[in-house]
Design a protein around this nucleic acid. Structure first.
Lengths: 133, 133
DNA sequence: ATGAACCTTCCCCTTAAGGTAAAGTAAAGC
DNA sequence: GCTTTACTTTACCTTAAGGGGAAGGTTCAT
């Protein structure tokens, strides 16, 4: 099938699928006479797999690892779990960081009247160099 | 003072400070004979202000707005608070999204033995197209 | 006067594609 | 056979916020 059909089936854009071909992530057979890429069912399955992994915040490079594991019938589930646990830790850290940011901003905002007067503890705090993380 | 000193005082890199000059965020006097940028104390204050706002996840464009408010003695604190509340909402949404991702990944990981055998519910789930967000 | 330390501009690199242009291909209709 | 339409190709530019490094100019201390 052509790239448009494959992309639709995988729930991706043709742009994305073409990008994956260009970076060597999922490289389909390319018809020499037309120059068109030709995708097989198994390619679509991999595209779906990648799409899902991307939705789970795995980077392209991590997707590359996952795909290698996915294609390796002899992989150990240990390897996959390790990658997943690392990703979970990463997400947790990001959440903590954002939570701290939110708390600090909320604190600043709570002190600001938000009226027509120019007095603004938020700007004061930003300019005073307080609140470093 | 020169850019290196200003950057150090503001806790930024010279690369960053030069970037801010290039995009018109904080443009110092530039000595015509040497070509060197010359920063005043008030410039350093603004650089610190921007540095802090960046640490609070404000984008460069938002920093531009904040800086305009910071420099406007007639601004109303309402405008600042509005911007801050929007940023808080944005951060909250990001946190929720990450939390959901984490939960789903944790769920997947909990079903995976993580041993030497190839059976892996994580890969199964990724390839089955389950878990869409 | 020369070397170190600083500064300048310029260009390429990063993530993961999106947008657009110019041109080639395929399939359907007439 | 010819045309239209839909699809595809490569290629280049853009994004956010700088980082890295080259080649060359400036300033300051020795």
């Amino acid at each position: 099938m052509n790239i448009g059909t494959a992309a639709k089936q995988a729930g991706l854009t043709t742009k994305t699928v073409r990008y994956y071909a260009n970076i060597g992530l999922i490289v389909p057979y390319q018809n020499p006479s037309s120059g068109y890429r030709e995708y097989m069912e198994s390619d679509v399955a991999k595209l779906q797999f990648i799409g899902m992994a991307r939705r789970f915040n795995f980077s392209i490079d991590e997707c590359r690892e996952l795909l290698a594991l996915y294609e390796d019938r002899n992989r150990s589930s240990h390897d996959v779990k390790t990658l997943t646990m690392l990703k979970i830790k990463e997400i947790e850290n990001k959440i903590k960081e954002l939570q701290s940011l939110k708390d600090q901003l909320s604190h600043l905002a709570s002190g600001c009247d938000g009226d027509d007067r120019p007095d603004c503890p938020i700007l004061d705090a930003l300019s005073a160099g307080k609140g470093q993380s």
